[in-house]
Design a protein around this nucleic acid. Structure first.
Lengths: 127, 127
DNA sequence: TGATTAATAGGAATCATTACTACTTAAACT
DNA sequence: AGTTTAAGTAGTAATGATTCCTATTAATCA
């Protein structure tokens, strides 16, 4: 993988946020620095970075998001505003449970908790 | 919700499988019975059924699938063939952990385990 | 410093899903 | 039973996220 200022900028934007952004959001941020970067370049690099395990892909409710946080963690997703928050939960007994299952060979898992975030909770109360 | 033979047929197809199918797969099955049903009708009814909690939506790696199994359960997804298997794992301590988190009000969660299913494991060994 | 080839910009293509519209039909109301 | 009315349908167009294509640019290396 050669170095390119586009990929560097993309990675830097992603590492500078904990908002689990979409490609479109990253595109709009990187554009401030490289105004004529194309959305295709953003997607291509995000996929390359994810394939090279420099970032992670997240699928929340059908939409693709990205995360520069590489250590194993899970997510909460607000069903109103789609905001994603990081979770650190210990899934006691899960490793044994899935290694006992002889239908497959597990390599990973991800937990998505859904609900309403505090901001959205307050909004609905105000109405 | 009025009754329609299209919706009945769709629900029956979904209840008759544990393969967590896509809309397209359900479409191809229902077509055997109602040859001129349209894909839009399948999508509209699947969404209605899901909104009415008669079936569940599943998002596996960005693709929409459906499940007539309504009781809370999780899934294993094979990263080779995309097959989905049902899991019954008890997530010890999870309920307390997420209700202790004061950033949100959780209403549900889903766990997706990934890896290689036995069929795909054997295939790779044969090569 | 020139050759090689990965990477890019810009735009076209793809694919799953949703929206639109004129027609059909379930079912509520005489 | 016949009429009304609004939900449902078929067929097709539109959408939107993502990927693909191609001529050009630029990183790397002999």
């Amino acid at each position: 993988m050669r170095k390119s200022k586009q990929r560097d900028a993309i990675l830097q934007v992603l590492q500078g946020t904990d908002s689990h952004p979409t490609a479109e959001w990253i595109f709009s941020r990187v554009r401030r620095e490289i105004p004529n970067i194309s959305l295709g370049t953003v997607y291509r690099n995000l996929n390359q970075l994810a394939d090279g395990h420099l970032i992670q892909r997240i699928f929340d409710d059908g939409h693709l998001r990205f995360d520069a946080n590489l250590h194993r963690h899970d997510h909460f997703r607000c069903i109103h505003c789609q905001r994603i928050l990081d979770l650190e939960v210990e899934l006691v007994g899960l490793d044994e449970a899935i290694s006992d299952d002889d239908r497959f060979n597990a390599t990973g898992y991800s937990l998505e908790v859904t609900g309403v975030c505090n901001e959205c909770q307050h909004e609905t109360e105000e109405i």
